[in-house]
């Protein structure tokens, strides 16, 4: 990558400003945008490497923007900003290729860390990776590219490196869900919780998936999405 191009979409000016300030020394090209529709327009018009996207936006919300990114086949690494501990619809977001999340209140160090990871994962290839976190990053890269089967394999490999990783199991669960295997997804989430009882993303996912099983409307919706693929 030459100069990293970063777009920050959040309706709060103070947030976009402080996020931008966090990367002031990195020499990135950073643009701030405080309106969802404006943000989507800029994503369509230009090529961006990284986009911070607030899930809750007035007008058009983050998920809709994400859907547009997916439908318009825009290649960008999206980092979702959420006010909750986790994204309520992380799997849906993942389906649209978004795999990185930060939650409020934000920390400059966390933001830098995640951006660094994204940048470094671009160079990863199946042949070169050997370590656990590399496999995870690779999987995320595949997810961004919507290569879910490859992502699935990468996670499996990550788990051979670190079989007690709640993060990896949660990711595996989400990928399984995207692939339509609810049972495997549920098992994976349960494994995640088994290894880290307090791992919120897995807890939320499991809760959602178990309540969804009873909700046939949601299930039908999901089945049709999978069939359309």
């Amino acid at each position: 990558m030459s100069q990293i191009k970063m777009l920050i979409i959040d309706d709060e000016i103070n947030i976009t400003k402080t996020i931008a300030a966090s990367f002031a020394k990195n020499g990135y090209f950073i643009q701030q945008c405080n309106d969802g529709n404006e943000g989507l327009k800029r994503l369509n018009e230009e090529k961006w490497d990284i986009a911070f996207l607030d899930i809750r936006l007035p007008g058009i919300d983050g998920m809709k923007i994400l859907k547009q990114i997916y439908e318009n086949q825009i290649s960008v690494n999206v980092i979702m900003i959420t006010a909750y501990g986790s994204v309520e619809n992380a799997v849906q977001a993942m389906k649209y290729g978004a795999v990185d999340f930060v939650s409020k209140p934000l920390e400059p160090a966390t933001l830098r860390n995640i951006v660094d990871k994204i940048i470094s994962r671009q160079h990863l290839s199946e042949q070169s990776v050997i370590e656990y976190h590399e496999f995870i990053e690779l999987a995320k890269l595949y997810i961004k590219q919507r290569e879910f089967h490859k992502a699935h394999d990468a996670i499996k490999k990550a788990l051979t490196q670190k079989p007690e990783s709640a993060e990896a199991y949660n990711l595996l669960g989400a990928i399984n869900e995207v692939l339509g295997d609810i049972v495997a997804a549920s098992q994976a989430y349960q494994m995640a919780i088994r290894f880290d009882a307090d791992y919120q993303p897995a807890l939320e996912n499991l809760k959602r998936i178990t309540s969804m099983e009873a909700n046939s409307a949601d299930l039908l919706d999901m089945m049709s999405t999978i069939l359309r693929k």
Partner: peptide, 11 residues
């Protein structure tokens, strides 16, 4: 509260 807290914290 989280939003302003984020700005404060970040700053």
């Amino acid at each position: 509260l989280k939003t302003p807290l984020t700005s404060i914290n970040m700053s």
